[in-house]
Design a protein around this nucleic acid. Structure first.
Lengths: 254, 254
DNA sequence: CGACACTTTGAAGACGATCAACGCCGGTGG
DNA sequence: CCACCGGCGTTGATCGTCTTCAAAGTGTCG
């Protein structure tokens, strides 16, 4: 079966933001679309990092097995996310994680070395990569802070807030893009703890029914979640990058 | 008082690794040396990010105040470390942390915009920055994993291991570059917990007396620490980067 | 010597992990 | 159609670890 993806879906990805039409379609055209079945591996821990992946549809879990048999989820990736931001800048690298398609997933794949060349020659692409990389680090730092200073319930609330802002979901009602079991693992907590947390954050205006989440009362959330988690706004970044391209490296012109 | 730093100390910094002699001294010469007294701020949370800092001597703490009055240490920086790796790729950025000189500290400072230009024009400098950035993310990810799956004692042991590898200290005996209170805060645990952890890791061949640490029996550490923490080797990276420069973008030649 | 910062130790409490049981749902097979 | 099963999620009870509060010990420096 041949995998296909609507062109305007690809266009909307932050990775390709701010690129000239021709440039973008050339780049996308050079990638190879591939489909993975649920449960199928993209790569294993320790494999040499040979491809750069763009998730077009579905869900991919990046995880690692700890020596004591515990599985730790490092990341959950959905439409528009990429795999290889880190390793592209370290060509001798092997994969730090195992990547599994959680459900049927379509990816756009590029040879790592080739994509690296593209990044060198197309400043805007490199910037988009760096943008994502530094944002990623920023989030990792914030989450580390959370794990040290917040209760499980607060961490869950902040996670939902980031999820919503980062993917541009509607705060007054959106669907979780992956199961609760996965989220719990992603947050480094047990499913039971996560489940109990859901009950607690209801008192703070965050209502969950099944996979449906809604922020009903933002005032109630105030001192419960951390201020840094709502600042992420993928759309705003888009705009910023476009500005930057057109104005030759300066931000938010005046 | 005019701050001075020995030239060969600067040369040894990973940031400047692999650069041509002339290129490096030009770059260093353009920076401004500045001295901070213990307790003095380099910048505050929320300040616009205007400078790129290279720590030449001393210790700088990056921290953030949580709404509930808790202070969280995000990073402890010593000789050779830099501040601004993240923000240099996001020109509209303000500082995410407050930076304080923990003890008398000397920095080399560059205007952010100017340093950005340098990174654009000198590929090797950009690579060094990216190298550091991606390593930073890698460590942040590992630490998040640790916080979720390890006991305090194990986290402390792994931290010492990373510290040693990352700064090239002698595993059989080195001095902690900052106080135990700071390390505890950096690891997101209470000083008491940290103190008790020190006693526990002694059983695993890691001995601490005052600020002196030594790994006495590496075999005892085996299943106690995580395998990922000993892989970091700043020196090896140096070499790799040099290779890469001389061979025009290829890693570990053949 | 005394003041002060830093660190260690002890005892109580809070929180999350763990083990166990149950409810819910979609699929499969008789 | 119903019985059975497995994956998923919830709820309850117990236990271990970390935090918190409190106190005492160690070191440096005036």
């Amino acid at each position: 079966m041949i995998a296909t993806v609507a062109p305007d879906v690809l266009k909307s990805f932050p990775l390709f933001a701010g690129m000239a039409e021709q440039e973008r379609s050339d780049l996308i055209g050079a990638g190879r679309l591939r489909r993975y079945k649920a449960g199928q591996h993209l790569f294993l821990y320790g494999d040499p990092a040979q491809l750069f992946y763009v998730i077009c549809d579905g869900t991919v879990q990046l995880s690692r097995e700890t020596p004591d048999g515990h599985e730790m989820t490092a990341e959950l990736l959905i439409k528009g996310d990429t795999i290889g931001k880190v390793t592209i800048f370290r060509p001798d690298a092997t994969h730090e994680f195992t990547a599994i398609a959680v459900k049927e997933t379509t990816t756009l794949e590029f040879p790592m070395g080739w994509f690296q060349e593209m990044a060198k020659n197309h400043g805007i692409l490199a910037l988009n990569l760096l943008e994502a990389l530094s944002r990623h680090l920023q989030i990792a730092t914030i989450e580390a802070e959370h794990k040290a200073t917040m209760t499980a319930a607060q961490q869950v609330a902040c996670f939902f807030e980031r999820l919503c802002a980062l993917y541009g979901f509607n705060p007054h009602g959106f669907e979780l893009p992956y199961s609760k079991t996965l989220i719990a693992s992603r947050l480094g907590m047990e499913l039971e703890t996560f489940s109990r947390a859901l009950a607690k954050i209801r008192d703070h205006g965050i209502v969950i029914h099944g996979t449906h989440v809604s922020f009903d009362n933002e005032r109630k959330m105030d001192s419960f979640v951390c201020a840094n988690c709502s600042i992420f706004d993928r759309c705003r970044e888009h705009e910023w990058l476009s500005c930057r391209l057109h104005e030759g490296g300066r931000a938010h012109a005046t």
